[in-house]
């Protein structure tokens, strides 16, 4: 069953004015449950706008978009941002509980389970300021998984981390994902990262069209050292180079 359905979606900033700027141009795709989908593309291709529309922060101009949950309840979304965005005055555990709707025994146990999964089971009583940047981002990831979202939105969560830390966190994310099988929409400009993590990559091109929809059919867990991963990464990169050459120079769009 499709968790996220996007049908003929358009977004024009300043529609009807002389300075109308179309950032998403007839986008259609859907994301089935329990899949990990990456949206990649150069800056200005409308990635963040698409994300904002999915999360309801921004409205769209035309077309349809829906996020469904099983059992007809309102869909629950989880977020991981570029930076950890933790409350500095609350302990790690209280930060995780803050975004939960209940504070009962079951919730607490779930929070601790996800903290364990990101390797911070012993750090529940620490304040964010006592953790390194990478550890804080792991708390951010655990927090998003712990709300058990129907759709988990990750907005370039590793872009502010150093390469080594980011690599460790990608491996960890794969493990958590394999255990929880949440539906993930992962936005990144890093194709290499997208290939390592995703079942499917949707490539947006400047002007806000889908350039390609690539299925990544590699066994998991994937490790960067795996030659098959490296080969595919190179291949996808080459296709994107190709896109750059083919795309006419479009005015940069937000």
């Amino acid at each position: 069953m499709a968790v996220l359905t996007v049908n003929d979606l358009c977004k024009t900033f300043g529609a009807g004015t002389a300075r109308a700027n179309r950032v998403l141009d007839h986008i259609t795709f859907d994301v089935r449950g329990q899949t990990f989908v990456s949206i990649v593309g150069p800056s200005g291709c409308g990635k963040s706008t698409l994300l904002n529309i999915i999360s309801g922060v921004e409205t769209h101009t035309s077309g349809e978009i829906s996020v469904t949950s099983d059992a007809g309840k309102p869909a629950r979304l989880g977020y991981v941002f570029q930076d950890p965005r933790l409350l500095p005055w609350r302990s790690v555990r209280r930060n995780m509980l803050y975004v939960q709707d209940a504070d009962d025994e079951v919730t607490r146990r779930r929070v601790d389970t996800y903290l364990d999964m990101v390797g911070l089971g012993k750090h529940g009583d620490f304040f964010p300021g006592q953790l390194s940047g990478g550890m804080q981002q792991r708390v951010g990831i655990a927090r998003a998984f712990a709300v058990e979202p129907d759709l988990l939105i990750m907005d370039e969560p590793f872009s502010h981390l150093d390469a080594i830390t980011a690599r460790g966190l990608r491996a960890q994310l794969q493990d958590i994902w394999a255990q929880s099988k949440k539906t993930v929409v992962f936005v990144t400009h890093d194709v290499v990262e997208a290939v390592e993590l995703s079942d499917r990559i949707i490539v947006l091109q400047p002007g806000g069209r889908i350039f390609e929809d690539i299925t990544i059919d590699l066994p998991r867990p994937r490790r960067q050292s795996d030659p098959a991963v490296a080969t595919l990464q190179a291949e996808v990169l080459a296709r994107l180079e190709n896109m750059k050459a083919m795309t006419p120079q479009v005015a940069a769009a937000g």
Partner: peptide, 10 residues
């Protein structure tokens, strides 16, 4: 590229 990084924590 044989790289053991994944198994090690940050």
């Amino acid at each position: 590229m044989s790289n053991p990084v994944i198994e090690a924590p940050p």
